[in-house]
Design a protein around this nucleic acid. Sequence first.
DNA 1: CGTCGATTTGACCAGATGGTCAAACAAAGA
DNA 2: TCTTTGTTTGACCATCTGGTCAAATCGACG
Lengths: 201, 201
Amino acid sequence: MQAVPQSRIQRRNRAAISEAALDVFSRQGFRGATLDEIASEAGLSKPNLLYYYKSKEAIYQQLLTGVLSTWLDPLRDLDPQGDPVEQILNYVRRKLDLSREMPRESRLFANEVLRGAPLVGDHLNGELRALVDEKAALIEAWAADGRIAAVSGRHLIISVWAETQHYADFDVQVRAVMGSGDPMAGAAQHLERLFRRLIEV
Amino acid sequence: MQAVPQSRIQRRNRAAISEAALDVFSRQGFRGATLDEIASEAGLSKPNLLYYYKSKEAIYQQLLTGVLSTWLDPLRDLDPQGDPVEQILNYVRRKLDLSREMPRESRLFANEVLRGAPLVGDHLNGELRALVDEKAALIEAWAADGRIAAVSGRHLIISVWAETQHYADFDVQVRAVMGSGDPMAGAAQHLERLFRRLIEV
DNA sequence: CGTCGATTTGACCAGATGGTCAAACAAAGA
DNA sequence: TCTTTGTTTGACCATCTGGTCAAATCGACG
């Protein structure tokens, strides 16, 4: 990704397209989304949209790649020097914040993985796997030192993903079950409790 | 649903269609799936398929309804008379077994909810909500009696869903992260630990 | 066998969809 | 103003997709 210089107009339109595409792709998935809907939501004609991105897949790819790195930031920041319990609980908090603030991105990713991750499979088996290897080892080192309870690093990380992303991805279901009021209410408390109990010695 | 008498041929073909449709819908989602693919996987021609089901949506609906009740069985069986901790842990176990044995059904449902549950929204706000109301109350009664730790019944149930379904729905991701060997290995232990620690007084 | 209802299929259709292209239009500098 | 470059669009296309239909084929039973 090099920073190609862009005119004012280019920047505006590309941004509008990304925004519209995120909306549509996250709701409908890749195959369910249509260029017409994206174009119309971006306030452009379809040919005009294709003037900025060479294909439907190109837009999708770009969104996905953008999300991926954001998504891993909180895990990347797990600090070997910090207090183990605080580090992990903070990881959970930041991940939950992401779900709260970027539910569309979360669903975009969920849709992709559900399909079998045809476009990000390599990334999963490369970058993601490497990062998890590293951080799982860190967690297990903490456990071995008796600074947190014995726990599988990989499964702990998976649990954090499962719990936090569920609130974004299955929003409709959560909403149905939580009744009126903010469905997110209490989620933070609940997860803090859950993970604290899991890892505290 | 009444039991319409069916010929041998009808039973065989309807079963083949259901099986093929489950496969395709769970991988591609509703919009991504095509009648051609389903028909071909069922070993029938497309018009022949439409002789048995009147539309794409009809097949989908039927699958979804079938899954829904199975999906709630374990929760339904939470027994007020049983030992609280054992009841909840057993619920987790059965839910994880479902994920292990019926990953396609899990993904089918996940796809539907991700889309905003257009076809099962009513079910979620009706049957599901009622059941969760009842069981969440039960859990919180146990908590109030000091038989398990204080915990939100609704959030506990959501956690069970999140944790167990994640292994089926995001299989590709789990597999990438868990490295070689059975990705499910250790999941049961981990979840047992996690939920035991969460609810034990 | 012959008949009648159940089953299967090839041909077809209308609408949607991703994508192309040449022409029209705007912007900005010379 | 003229020219050049960047931007936008209407018309169009090939393909895919859900669905129809009349005709052909099959199967069971008298």
